[in-house]
Design a protein around this nucleic acid. Structure first.
Lengths: 126, 126
DNA sequence: ACAATGCTTCAAGATTTGTTGAAGTGTTGA
DNA sequence: TCAACACTTCAACAAATCTTGAAGCATTGT
């Protein structure tokens, strides 16, 4: 993960419309949703939705597949997770103690954290 | 985590300057950095840096502490992790099978994923 | 072939965000 | 007390982003 991609991902999620679209598609899973369904569900005019879908798709956060005259969109969750990994590289000045403390502070994020590994070379909130 | 906060977090990280600042402070750990140090390290004029620090601090991604005439900034990593949790709530249409598949796709993010729990009520990339 | 449909691209104007120099606030040390 | 310092706020302009209606491009069904 390089800086430019991470930046594009955060830019893509920095609008209310795009955040809602992405979350809708995360919930939809691999079934995804056709553009018209998203437009209806979120009450966004097709022209405007298309503009935002373009941004999400361009950075890879969404994939598109043509189905006849429909376009089906799906969320790319692994990219999202990789972006977080980029953000937390070399965290805590490489001090396991600090990371352990941090872990205790991450309440609702707890299920996302890996088991603590005292022998870890690099410290990634873990 | 409510929508507005998640939105502010993504907005805060959607600028190159702010992304660099946050990453610098993630690496710095709880020692943090004083504004002047950030300005020097990233070569950003103080006026401009101040503008961006404000955005990061306003949503809670950074904390500030006064030290004499200096202001020390620190990254709030748990907030970042909570934001991801918000993003992936009720993912995969609540299908454990889909989530297991997803997990295999998250390469570099792997260390961030919790152990698979087939009995989980809710499906969060896990 | 043709009209209807689903969605996108284009062009424009409106809104938001970013950047900079000048001025302001509070702290430190002589 | 006063000058130097660290940093912020302010004001003005520059630049990027958002939104919308009109027009375009495939695909579908008759």
């Amino acid at each position: 993960m390089q800086r430019e991609l991470a930046l594009q991902v955060f830019e893509a999620l920095s609008s209310g419309v795009r955040l809602d679209v992405f979350r809708l598609l995360v919930r939809a899973g691999k079934e995804g949703r056709v553009a018209g369904e998203i437009s209806d569900a979120l009450d966004i005019p097709p022209t405007n939705l298309s503009f935002h879908l373009k941004g999400l798709t361009h950075c890879g956060l969404l994939s598109v597949e043509q189905e006849g005259r429909y376009l089906r969109y799906r969320a790319n969750i692994p990219l999202m997770l990789d972006t977080i990994a980029y953000l937390t590289e070399n965290c805590c000045a490489d001090s396991p103690d600090e990371c352990a403390e941090l872990r205790r502070g991450a309440s609702s994020a707890a299920p996302f954290l890996p088991p603590l590994d005292p022998a870890a070379q690099k410290c990634r909130i873990s």
